[in-house]
Design a protein around this nucleic acid. Structure first.
Lengths: 208, 208
DNA sequence: GTCTATAGGCGGATAGAC
DNA sequence: GTCTATCCGCCTATAGAC
């Protein structure tokens, strides 16, 4: 867990502005000046509250980090139903977290693309999620090889985050907005269908 | 097709340097000065050959664009075998192109994350690939809904590109290098397994 | 806590000598 | 074609008044 930031009203405004701008314009595009402008505060005030730009970004990331882990932990803790039911529940939680925080996957993507320093900010977050996946799939996937849990983690998290990050690029090709509620519902259906396809093949075609 | 750039020896050096730097540091991190430094030429020379930074990036992208389309077109043109065989062949081509040009997916990712101007550079490229997928899957996927070809395109291209872009981030979690030849072979196996899982469920569990 | 003012550096891009 | 020198703007960050 990450230390909670003091919750000044102004800090919140700055964090929110930074969040939106990071998703729109990436790490370098989200300059402190523009963040301050969007937050309606003075530029120097950003440094007063967050010390440096990289600390500011870390604070934005930490908010999501905590919320993301909490959302998945809740879904994962519920052990009702068989493996299939449980996996679908976690996928639902993952997907709905992303659709409620659409800037998050774009933010992470931007950090990975930006530079080595930004990349390490993302690493810790991914580690925890990765370990839960491994634990959850331990009984149904073999260790090592193409069916190792790590590959399913990469595949399914990419299926969700990839959709959200690529959405603005593919919108023109698709004709309609891939992020409107209807389109999101369909995408979620697709992911569930994929989960069942995987489980059918892994477990030997039980009824879905 | 994109107009071919005049192939000066110097232009090539600059393009190569820009390519590597874009993948490492993203759009903003790849400043013209750093590109020139890595290419071993003067900064002003970059502007002489490419006019502006965005034109330079477009030129880098165009090289991949042509090569990527050609690689997939060759795989797609071969109509031997049934749908399943054909799809596996295209997936192989897609994957092997990415592993031979590892900076490419990172470059695209960086552009998407960077800014609106950079985003449109990527769009045209994705459109053509997207249309081929739709055409290839026309007979086996329904129009609209969660099984529309567009969703499978998003899912499988994400499965490949996502792996390559996230690789440096997950390397620590996985212990060994996810981009070494052995690991790549396993990932490719995983993707093929996923293709079969999808086809089994779509076509009604024929032998794979 | 919030502001103005400013320092110092690096970004893209151009002029002009060779 | 290749270089040096330079312009101007925006960047992160700080000093100091209120």
């Amino acid at each position: 867990m990450v230390a909670r930031m003091a919750r000044h009203e102004t800090s919140e405004k700055i964090l929110t502005a930074a969040d939106a701008l990071l998703a729109e314009a990436g790490y370098d595009g989200a300059s402190v000046g523009r963040v301050a402008e969007r937050a309606g505060v003075n530029k120097a005030l950003v440094f007063y509250h967050f010390e440096s730009k990289s600390k500011l970004v870390e604070a934005v990331l930490a908010r999501y980090y905590d919320a993301h882990q909490a959302a998945l932990k809740a879904a994962y803790a519920n052990t009702d139903g068989d493996v299939r039911t449980r996996i679908h529940r976690v996928v639902d939680a993952y997907f709905s977290f992303m659709s409620e925080h659409r800037t998050y996957p774009r933010l992470v993507l931007g950090l990975i693309a930006a530079n080595e320093e930004a990349r390490v900010m993302v690493q810790d977050n991914l580690l925890a999620l990765f370990e839960w996946t491994t634990e959850m799939l331990a009984d149904i996937t073999p260790n090592g090889g193409p069916l190792d849990a790590r590959h399913f983690y990469s595949t399914f998290s990419g299926m969700v985050t990839g959709y959200f990050t690529y959405a603005p690029v593919i919108a023109d090709a698709w004709g309609d907005d891939p992020l409107c509620p209807d389109a999101l519902a369909v995408r979620l259906e697709h992911v569930h269908w994929m989960v069942d396809a995987v489980l059918d093949r892994l477990l030997g075609a039980e009824p879905s």
